[in-house]
C-alpha cells in the first residue's frame, strides 16, 4: 500500500524530483522517468502522473497514454508480496495456467488485483528466463520452479507466517 505518512511521501517526491532533474533535458525520456517513478512509489497513481506532467510540461493525457500502453506500468498499488506467474510459452505448456488459477483461489483475488489488506497481489509475465524450471512463479523476485498447483498453498503460507512474525 502507498504510504500515507506525509514525511515519507515528501521523501518520495524528492527522489522523483531528482529523477526528473536527471532526464528533463533529454527528449523522449518520459518512459525512463515513469519507470523510475514506479520504482519509487511502487505504482503510478494519478497524483504522481500529474506531478510528472507539471514538472516535465508534458500533457497528462499523453503520460496516461504511455502508462496504459505498456503492461509494465501499473496505476494500482501492488501488494506487499507480489506473486508473478509466468505465462510464457514454456511455462504455459507445462501448466502455469493451473498455477495461476490456484494462486487466485488461495488468495481470493484475481489476476492484476491486490488483496484488501494490501498484503498480496497477482501479476502475470511473459518469461523470467528460467524456462528450465518451468512452470515458474516469482514472489517479490524470489523464484519458485517446477511448481504444481498443490505446492502453491505452502508458498503462500510462508509469506503469511513471515507477516505474522513481523
Amino acid at each position: 500500500m502507498a504510504c500515507t505518512c506525509n514525511a515519507h511521501n515528501q521523501e518520495k517526491y524528492q527522489q522523483l524530483d531528482a529523477v526528473i532533474a536527471e532526464y528533463i533535458d533529454q527528449p523522449g525520456s518520459l518512459i525512463n522517468v515513469l519507470h523510475k517513478a514506479q520504482g519509487i512509489f511502487g505504482y503510478l497513481p494519478e497524483e504522481v502522473q500529474a506531478y510528472i506532467a507539471e514538472k516535465m510540461d508534458i500533457p497528462l493525457s499523453e503520460i496516461y497514454g504511455v502508462v496504459t500502453f505498456y503492461a509494465l506500468f501499473t496505476t494500482e498499488p501492488k501488494g506487499k508480496y507480489n506473486f508473478n506467474v509466468c505465462l510464457g510459452t514454456a511455462c504455459y505448456v507445462k501448466g502455469s495456467g493451473k498455477i495461476l488459477e490456484r494462486v487466485e483461489k488461495e488468495l481470493g483475488i484475481k489476476l492484476n488485483e491486490t488483496s484488501a489488506d494490501g498484503l498480496f497481489s497477482i501479476e502475470a509475465c511473459r518469461c523470467v528466463g528460467a524456462c528450465g524450471l518451468a512452470p515458474v512463479m516469482t514472489v517479490n523476485g524470489e523464484v519458485y520452479g517446477r511448481l504444481t498447483p498443490d505446492k502453491v498453498p505452502a508458498i503462500i503460507q510462508k509469506y503469511k507466517d513471515l507477516e505474522a512474525n513481523n
Binding site: E46, Q49, P59, L60, S61, E62, I63, Y64, G65, T68, F69, T75
Partner: peptide, 28 residues
C-alpha cells in the same frame, strides 16, 4: 486529439490502452 493538442494546446484527449482495447479519452 490533434485538434485539442495542436490547435487548442489543451491536450485533454489522448489515446488510452493498446490493441483492441485502445480508446480515446481524457487521462484516467
Amino acid at each position: 486529439i490533434a485538434t485539442c493538442q495542436k490547435v487548442q494546446g489543451v491536450s485533454i484527449l489522448g489515446t488510452i490502452n493498446r490493441g483492441f482495447n485502445s480508446t480515446v479519452g481524457p487521462a484516467f
